[in-house]
């Protein structure tokens, strides 16, 4: 990979290529157009007649101008994409036929107002289009059964995030609304690179539902999620460490820990929860042992010797020494 200096030069060069000619020439930059919203006359002239009960987006924006403008800057407003609301019935694709609402001078009971709808009714509307890939497993998922709807987390008209139209600026801020204990753990000394910006909640989880436990998005079981990045631990190995093979979270807390390597307890105490046999596994490693600098409490403790703790491919590896 390039050094800092050459990488910066390359990037500057690309920047020069893509800076629009208008900016260099001095003309004021134009607002990006994401699918033109036709005027009333254009719609009347160019578009086919609206079905009964529909009034068209141009009628909606005569009162809801700010919502129209905000939508035009999002994917929902991209008329060029045939799957978007704006390519279909416009505002009424989601909010339903608007004629009754218009005729009743804006009576909100005559149209779908999402914040006032039951959660599952909101979701039914969104799922008429969002049916693929990461949304497939929404029905029956943990969030759905807790009566969350799409607008619990997303905002169609006034998103705050850079991607995914979230109601908060960042994912972690949003998820912390309900999952505060997990978010607090990110501040611990042993943590995944979430607060450094290299990972976020959806690096591991799919909040829309998944085939895995705990809404993990990769694989079909907890371990498959972990080994999607930590593949060296996949094995399988000749000698397995059973609690690890059954579940990584037996020993590790993936959200964060005050203990080394995201362990749920400090060594040797964690190992001594399962290893009670004679001699050194069952020894009390107290202050006296510490003073004698017993290697079984100082430093990496048990894994200083039992280093291949996730499993070993060595024929002498039954105790994970080799």
């Amino acid at each position: 990979m390039p050094t800092r200096f050459s990488a910066i030069l390359v990037f500057l060069g690309c920047l020069g290529m893509f800076t629009p000619a208008t900016a260099r020439a001095g003309a004021p930059p134009k607002l990006p157009r994401i699918g033109p919203v036709p005027t009333h006359q254009q719609a009347a002239q160019a578009a086919p007649a609206l079905p009964s009960g529909y009034v068209g987006a141009d009628t909606c924006v005569t009162c809801h101008d700010s919502e129209g403008k905000s939508l035009s800057h999002t994917e929902h407003g991209r008329a060029a994409n045939p799957r978007t609301p704006m390519a279909g019935m416009g505002c009424e694709s989601c909010h339903g036929p608007g004629k009754a609402h218009v005729d009743a001078d804006g009576d909100i009971t005559k149209i779908r107002v999402f914040p006032k709808m039951a959660a599952r009714d909101v979701t039914q509307v969104c799922l008429t289009c969002h049916v693929k890939s990461e949304h497939v497993n929404w029905q029956g998922s943990a969030h759905e059964t807790r009566n969350l709807s799409c607008i619990t987390c997303h905002s169609v008209h006034s998103p705050k995030s850079e991607v995914a139209q979230l109601k908060k600026t960042t994912q972690i801020e949003l998820c912390a609304t309900c999952h505060r204990p997990q978010v607090l753990k990110v501040q611990r000394t042993a943590h995944m690179p979430v607060r450094e910006g290299k990972m976020e909640c959806t690096s591991c989880h799919n909040p829309h539902g998944s085939t895995n436990q705990r809404l993990l998005k990769v694989g079909n079981y907890i371990n498959e999620s972990c080994i999607s990045c930590h593949t060296e631990k996949r094995g399988p190995f000749l000698f397995e460490h059973p609690p690890g093979r059954e579940s990584c979270v037996t020993c590790h807390d993936p959200h964060g820990s005050s203990n080394e390597r995201l362990l749920v307890a400090k060594l040797p105490m964690l190992c001594q929860r399962c290893h009670i046999g004679t001699n050194h596994p069952s020894t009390i490693y107290d202050g006296a042992q510490l003073k004698n600098v017993s290697i079984r409490i100082v430093g990496r403790s048990c894994v200083a010797c039992h280093e291949n703790i996730h499993g070993s491919n060595s024929p002498s590896g039954n105790a994970f020494h080799r």
Partner: peptide
């Protein structure tokens, strides 16, 4: 940290039989 801070590991030969 009694096991991992500088007082626990003041030098790499922590005892007569180990080097970390």
């Amino acid at each position: 940290d009694f096991a991992l801070d500088a007082t626990a590991l003041p030098k790499i030969d922590v005892n007569t039989g180990s080097i970390l």
